[in-house]
C-alpha cells in the first residue's frame, strides 16, 4: 500500500495536477477567444466592465440572494464553497506541499480553524447532496453526474479530516491517505472535464447577459440560405 501511496502522491499527483492546470488554462483561453469572437462579429462592441465586476463581486458572497428562497440551501452552498476554497489551499499540510512543489509560500491555517472549516464544508456538502435527493425540484433536475460531482468533492474532505484525526478514524492512516490522495487526484481530473470548471469560469458568468445578446448582422439570411441549400440538395 505504501508503494501505491507513494505513486499517488508522486508522479500520479504531478500528472493529474498538471492535467488540471492545463485543462483550466485551456478553458480560460477558449472562453476568452470565444468572447473576442462574439464581439468581433457584431457591431455593438462596448462591454460594461464596471457592471460586470460589480455583479461578479456580488455573487462571490451572495448574501442578498440568501433569503429569496430556500435559505438553508443557500447558506449551505456558501458554507460549502468557503470551506472547499480555503481548506485545500491554506491547510498547514498543504501549505507545505505548495512550498515544496512550487516554491510558493502561503500562510497556513491553524489546526483548529482548519477543523472548523472542514467540518462546516462536510456538513454543508452532505446537506447539498441530501437536498438533491429530497427536494423534489432539485431531484427532477439532477442527473447522475450532479450526484457524482458532489460526492467526488466530499470524499477528499472526509478522508482528509479523518486522516488528520486518526484516533477517531475507522481505517488506518495509510489507507485514509491513499483514499484522500487518489480522490484528490480524481478531483483534479474532474475539474476541467466537468461543471467543476466553474472554479475558473466563474468570472465569465456575469458577462453572459451583457454579451450573448450581441447578435450577428446577416446571420438570419445566411441560415435561411444554408437551409434552402440543404433542402434543394435533398430534393435533387
Amino acid at each position: 500500500m505504501s508503494e501505491l501511496l507513494a505513486f499517488a502522491r508522486g508522479p500520479f499527483f504531478v500528472l493529474t495536477f498538471t492535467f488540471m492546470i492545463l485543462g483550466l488554462l485551456r478553458h480560460i483561453g477558449l472562453r476568452t477567444y470565444r468572447l473576442y469572437q462574439v464581439l468581433h462579429r457584431t457591431p455593438k462592441r462596448d462591454v460594461p466592465w464596471g457592471k460586470i465586476v460589480r455583479n461578479t463581486a456580488g455573487w462571490l458572497l451572495p448574501i442578498r440572494h440568501i433569503f429569496t428562497s430556500a435559505p438553508t440551501m443557500k447558506i449551505a452552498s456558501i458554507a460549502f464553497h468557503v470551506g472547499i476554497v480555503i481548506v485545500p489551499v491554506f491547510l498547514a499540510d498543504h501549505v507545505f506541499l505548495w512550498s515544496r512543489g512550487l516554491g510558493i509560500s502561503l500562510p497556513g491555517l491553524s489546526d483548529r480553524a482548519a477543523d472548523v472549516l472542514t467540518l462546516m464544508a462536510i456538513a454543508a456538502g452532505f446537506y447539498l447532496f441530501g437536498f438533491r435527493i429530497l427536494n423534489r425540484t432539485a431531484r427532477n433536475l439532477s442527473g447522475r453526474i450532479d450526484y457524482f460531482v458532489t460526492a467526488a468533492v466530499l470524499v477528499p474532505l472526509v478522508s482528509g479530516y479523518l486522516a488528520s484525526h486518526p484516533e477517531s478514524a475507522p481505517l488506518t492512516y495509510e489507507a485514509l491517505m491513499l483514499i484522500h490522495v487518489l480522490s484528490a487526484n480524481l478531483l483534479f481530473v474532474l475539474m476541467p472535464t466537468t461543471k467543476l470548471a466553474h472554479v475558473v469560469l466563474f468570472p465569465f458568468d456575469r458577462l453572459s447577459p451583457e454579451i450573448f445578446w450581441r447578435l450577428v448582422p446577416g446571420a438570419g439570411d445566411r441560415v435561411a440560405e444554408a437551409l434552402r441549400g440543404n433542402r434543394q440538395g435533398a430534393e435533387a
Binding site: 430556500a70 432539485a138 433536475l141 450532479d146 461543471k195 470548471a197 458568468d205
Partner: peptide, 9 residues
C-alpha cells in the same frame, strides 16, 4: 452547458 449546476435556484 459547462456551467449549468441544476441547483434549482
Amino acid at each position: 452547458s459547462r456551467s449549468s449546476m441544476k441547483c434549482s435556484s
